[in-house]
Every structure is written in C-alpha cells, then in structure tokens.
Write a protein that binds this DNA or RNA. Structure first.
Lengths: 344, 344
DNA sequence: GTTAGCACTCAAACACCCCGAGTGCTAAAT
DNA sequence: ATTTAGCACTCGGGGTGTTTGAGTGCTAAC
C-alpha cells in the first residue's frame, strides 16, 4: 500500500508531467509548495514508487515519467476535481442552441464541441439505427426500371436506397405492396424487418400481388439496413499538435487508424458501460495506440442507452478536465434528448 | 526559347527528381544513356536553365531541383505519355463492379480507387443537388409536433429534414398541402423551389389551407436545400508518406486544411474547365499548399458537366501517371453514368 | 526519518572536422 | 565555336569530442 506521502508525490509528478510533458525531477518537486521535503527525501520516495511500477525513467539520470500503472492509479484514485469555466459551459450549451431536431446532427455537433473544448480528437457513436422502429416505407418510382425506397423510423431517421424494379412488376401492384408492407410492419424494429417479411408478410403478398416473388428479394434487401451505428469524428488532426507525436513516424499508424475509423468502432463498442470509462495506452490493445488514452461516456434517452461519446488523446492527457467535460456533455445530451424524444 | 538539348536536360532532371526526390547533379545526368554529354557541358546548360528560372539549387553546391516554372513547362510540354497496366485498368473498372445505382456512391468509390491507385489524396466533387429536379415531396408525421420532410429528386437523391408542425395546423390540411406542393412543383429544379413556392404556390395554398402562413415558412425552409455539392475525400493521410512532408511542422497546416475541407471546395469549384487542369504550388493561392499540386478532371452525363475528380499531391507528383489515371477514370465515369442516367 | 553533499550518468547542445557531391570557371582539345 | 578536362571552391551531413546541466543513488551527518 502506498503511504500518503507517496500518493502526494505521485499525484504531483503526474499533474506536472501532464502540464509540461517533461520528465519531473526531485528538485522540481521539492520546490513545489505542496511539498516541503528536500530533494533527497523525494528521491528516496521516487525510487520506491519506481520499484512499485508507478513511475519510470526515460534514461538513467532523467526525471520520472508516469507509467501506465501510474496513470491507472491516478485516474482511479487521485483525480483532482475540476470546475468548468462559464465559457466551457456556454459552449456545451451551444450544442443544443440551434434547434436541430435531428438526432444524428446533435450527436455530430457534440463531437465537434468536444474536440473544440479539449483540443483532442473526439468520437461520437450515434444511436443504433437497427433498434429504431419503422414509421413508414415509401417507394417512389424514378423511371421504368428504378425507384427509390425510403424508410423512415420513429426517431426521424431516414434511410434510402435506389432499387431496380423487375419489368414484370406492375406499377399498381407496387403501390399495393407498399401499402401491405406499411400495414404489417409499422412499429417493428428495423433489425427484425427482414425476418418478419419472410415469416409473416410473404404469405399476404402472395395472395394479393402478381410476381410477388420477383419483388420480395428486392424489398427484403432494401430493408436490410446497415447494422452499424454511425460514427462522427472531430479534430482528427489534433494529435499532430501533441509534442509526443512530433515525430511523423509515430503518428502515421495512428492517423491511418483514425482515417479508417473501423478500429475505433470496435473499441467504442467495447466501451459501453454506463458512466465514464478510461483505457490507457496498451490497455486499448491496438498497436497504434500505445501512447494514447481513450475516455468514453454514454448518453441515453430515458433509461435506454443510445450511444457513446469519446475523447482520444495522448496518455499524457488532461484526464480531470476531459472527464468533467465528457460527464457534462453526456448528461446534458441525455437530458435534452430525453426531453425531445421521450414521448413519441 | 529553349534548345532541344535544354528541353531534354530539363525533362530528365524533372523525371529523375520526381522519382528520387533528391536534387539532381550534372554527373548523374551525364551517366544517363539518353544524354551523352560530359558533366561540364551539362553544368553549363543547367546554369542557363537556372537563369531562365526553370530549375533551382537548394544551396550553393547542391544539385538542381525543378522550380514551379519548371514544373509548369514540364506539365505543359514535356509529359511522356504513360500506359496503364492491366491491373490499374482492372481497378478502375471495379468502381462500377457492384451495381450501385446511387450516383453519390459511385463518385465516392471513384475517390477511393483514385487514392488507391496513386497513393495521393483524392477528392471528388459530387453532382450539384441544386440542379436536380424535384420528383416528390413527402411529409411523414412522427408525433404531434414533429414530422420528417423528404424530398426525392429525379436522380434518386433523397434529402430529409425534421420539422416542427405548429399546433394550429390540422393533419388533414397537412396532407392536402403536400398534394398541392407535389402537383405544382414536380420537375422544378431544387434551386428554384423556394422562389416558386412564394410566387406561385402560396396563393393556391391560401385558398385551400387554414393557417397556411404558419406552415409556409416551415415548408420553404425545408425546401431550402444545401447549395453545396457533396465532397468525398480518400487517402487523407497519404501526404504523411511523402518524404517532403516528413517534418510535422510542414504537414500541420495542410492536414488542417484537408480536415476542414472547405478550402478545397472553393478550389475545386474554380477547377471546372473540361479536361485535365493542373495547378502547381503557389498557383493554388493557398498558404498550406506551397508544396502541393492539384490535378483535376471533370465528368459528365451526356453533355451536362456533373462534377470534378481530383488528386492532391506534392509538387513532386507523378504528373504523367496521375493525369493518365484521372483521364481514364473521368471518361469511364462519364460513359457509365451517361448509360445509367441519360434517359430518365 | 530527514537532509546535505558528493560522485556519477546521460541527453542535448555545440564546436569541429572531414568527406563527398556538387558547382563555376578556365584553358586545352576537338 | 563547342566541348571537355581539370581545378578550386562551397556546403550539407555525418561523425567525433567536449561541455553543460539536470538528474540520479548513496553515504554520512543531523
């Protein structure tokens, strides 16, 4: 177990390192007013902390730098609470300022504001479309062979798809079919649509529609909505401003990952616990992210958890501030979205 | 005027520099089999080329490097024609392989393939939605206060918008209004919609609909489609692989620009001449792009020019290859799109 | 238990030198 | 009149050596 003095020293080392990015030496620490010990004493304590694995040296005679274990302890036990400035709060409020009622746009705006506030990269995982419920199917012919199929969900989300219509299908049948689909499928979660069509609607269609089978697959494909939640990034290049990434060799794999996005999708899916979740460096188990930390929070409508907002930064990230901000944004987001969308 | 020999030397210098990225010296040149002159003679010629502004030295005793004027001359007069490999052609064909009938997706895929083929950043400017013609307006109520307004165009493009419905508006009136709008507005280019509503449809609405004025603005706003064409990027981080950008200081402003996208929108709008257009370094008049060149081509449906595809690379770009590829993609794109969309 | 003092280490900055690739110029060769 | 060989010169880059300063660990005294 760490003594109070060791905790104090550990905390001050990490705070200082997060601020300066430079290894922290014993003399620097002894001059801080929170600490009234000689540098020699501090050196002894630091040697112990190093032996316990909380801090490291970059070379034999350098100051100390937090290890991943050190950051982990810091995040779990040593965070000094932060207060947001009036300005910060104002910015967060601005997410909801223009009355954008489109859920995805609000989420996207949140990502934007988060990266503005923190100068890190921010990622927001939108609500899963597959859980939305069908509000309306519409098929609008463009010409003889093609039409646009449109699906509207109860949250106002719209999916659309250009389809080709077999020549054998009669336009009036098409209309009839759309009516049947709407009658039978409204209120069904999108993810269940395909199933339901084959199991319940196919029979009805067969009774009323000529050539129904040539259409069935087209329709079913149309309703095969992308399973993945939309992801919004903001401040993708902010990592380039971090001094630890001033070497282009080190950023390249990371930027590649950020550009491709898919790794982060998996990562965020794993971060689905309610509340703040922090993973540090190699805890992320991704080779480009050894020197990065990811902090996530979830937002919800009522009790139903909708999505995740996240900040990606260097392990030397301002954990306190970021956590405070994420908490605030997530809770405001949940409150507002609940108000807007709760009683459909 | 340049002599043939000077042209040869200029061409070989630029070809070599594009390949190697290293300043080219007289001895290197004299060893090339295209050139059978002593290094001393070449030095004299190079001194002249430098005086004329086509090449530069990086320092007093360095080899020569093409100047912007040199690249300009090279692009305008010295390009050696390239042949695409079977593999390249295959990749280009793959743009149209899955029968995606959505125009925007094809354009996006083109950008993807272009950056794959060249290892540079690629940008595609989609067709302007504002010129599409209205096919159908649909308003689908979500609950008492909100509804989704959907606009479908003749190209199968779908725009949607969540709107709030004033409490004073009757649902049946809403339906009636949508019918009127569809009757009057189908076939109208999106950009003229707003005008037309106020000038021609407003009167009709007043006659048939209660509280029509409280809806009019909502509707008009809905139809106020984003004027800007969609832009698709691919290979945003490819610039990081170019040796001339190995210094992070130099990439940062460029990456910022690429992330924000809007500067490129303006740039591409300017590049709207039919055929290949090349701007080199400071010709782009953007401070992050001193060391970049932009090559663009346009694609069309029939005679109607639709959009632009572009490659962004270092000034030391493989102009020949990129131009050949862009030409090919633009022409294939035009051919296929014309086939698919010509006779609606 | 704490501190002062000392010997020691290492990275970073700097000076220095040398090498090689390049130049321009001049005089001789073609 | 060109072309070329030869030579003196320049400069960047890489290597080496030195100094400086910020750090450490250890020991002995407080």
């Amino acid at each position: 177990m760490l003594t109070d003095r060791q905790l104090l020293i550990l905390q001050v080392i990490i705070d200082d390192f997060i601020r300066s990015g430079q290894p922290v030496g014993s003399r620097t620490l002894s001059k801080k007013h929170e600490i009234s010990l000689s540098s020699a004493t501090i050196r002894n304590e630091m040697a112990d902390l190093e032996e316990l694995g909380y801090i490291e040296k970059t070379h034999v005679s350098s100051g100390r730098v937090p290890s991943e274990k050190g950051y982990r302890y810091y995040v779990d036990h040593l965070l000094s609470p932060q207060r947001l400035t009036q300005e910060d709060i104002q910015k967060i409020k601005s997410i909801f300022a223009e009355r954008i009622y489109e859920l995805e746009k609000v989420v996207q705006k949140s990502a934007q504001i988060l990266s503005d506030l923190t100068n890190y990269t921010s990622i927001a995982l939108g609500p899963a479309v597959k859980d939305n419920k069908l509000k309306r199917i519409q098929i609008i012919p463009l010409n003889k062979q093609t039409a646009v199929a449109i699906i509207v969900t109860d949250t106002g989300h719209v999916e659309n798809h250009v389809i080709t219509i077999p020549a054998s299908v009669d336009p009036s049948d098409l209309e009839k079919m759309v009516n049947i689909l709407n009658e039978r499928l409204i209120g069904v979660p999108l993810i269940d649509l395909k199933d339901k069509i084959y199991k319940e609607v196919a029979d009805v269609l067969r009774m009323h529609i000529h050539n129904y089978d040539s259409m069935l697959k087209t329709i079913a494909d149309t309703l095969d909505i992308p399973q993945e939640e939309k992801m919004f990034f903001a401040g993708k290049t902010n990592m380039l401003n971090q001094p630890e990434f001033s070497d282009i060799q080190k950023v390249r794999p990371l930027m590649k990952m950020i550009e491709q996005e898919k790794d982060f999708y998996r990562l965020l899916r794993k971060h689905n616990r309610k509340g703040i979740q922090v993973t540090i460096g190699r805890e992320n188990q991704l080779s480009g992210m050894e020197n990065c930390s990811l902090i996530t929070a979830t937002y919800s409508i009522g009790k139903e958890q909708l999505g995740t907002i996240a900040i990606l930064g260097p392990t030397r990230m301002e954990y306190s501030r970021v956590i405070t901000i994420l908490n605030r944004v997530a809770s405001d987001l949940s409150t507002v979205l609940t108000k807007w969308y709760q009683n459909n």
